[in-house]
């Protein structure tokens, strides 16, 4: 009964909207809800049907008492089949623990990423414009510049390739 009341308490429409579920998760949730509804409806229909048999009436009506006795015996000895759901429940618990762990991990990752982004944003906001930068600052931010300079100078090249094509040539000769 406890699970049934829990299922009744869930506001299904709210679950899918408030959690922002999309795609496969939403469809599987819908399917699960449908299964739950179907099962509940079936239980409702079956529990409305009469569950007792008036054997005295049949004994009065039928001549063959033996068959009534046999049926009554069978009826009394009938027990509804019980299913052991402990294993499924355990599996669900394990799955939930795994899911919670995954969610925690993702949360940590997202938080780290957020911090990183915040730092980057701060960096961008406090950065000075290009006009105020010096060559030393640019070179210290990108050590590759010094390496490239050294390699060009050691080859005796005083103009980086592609510079003139890009920015024009101011030399008079």
């Amino acid at each position: 009964m406890a699970t049934r009341s829990a299922a009744l308490k869930i506001d299904w429409a709210k679950v899918s909207t408030s959690l922002g579920l999309r795609g496969q998760t939403a469809t599987s949730l819908q399917a699960f809800k449908k299964r739950n509804d179907d099962a509940r409806r079936k239980v409702q229909v079956l529990s409305e049907q009469p569950q007792t048999v008036d054997f005295a009436h049949y004994r009065g009506v039928l001549k063959n008492q033996a068959i009534v006795d046999e049926i009554e015996k069978h009826f009394k000895s009938f027990k509804p089949a019980t299913y052991d759901v402990a294993r499924q429940l355990k599996a669900i618990d394990a799955f939930e623990a795994q899911a919670v762990q995954n969610a925690e991990q993702t949360k940590g990752k997202v938080e780290a990423e957020l911090q990183n982004l915040q730092k980057t944003l701060e960096n961008i906001e406090t950065a000075r414009p290009f006009e105020d930068l010096t060559v030393d600052e640019v070179a210290s931010a990108q050590p590759e510049i010094d390496e490239k300079t050294a390699s060009l100078v050691s080859k005796g090249k005083w103009m980086p390739p592609g510079y003139k094509e890009r920015f024009g040539d101011l030399s008079a000769v």
Partner: peptide
């Protein structure tokens, strides 16, 4: 020129390419 002046120009050019 080879040790101080021209390398400084080259460095400026490369920095300009980089920030562009």
């Amino acid at each position: 020129f080879t040790k101080f002046i021209l390398p400084r120009f080259v460095r400026i050019f490369i920095s300009r390419i980089y920030i562009n």
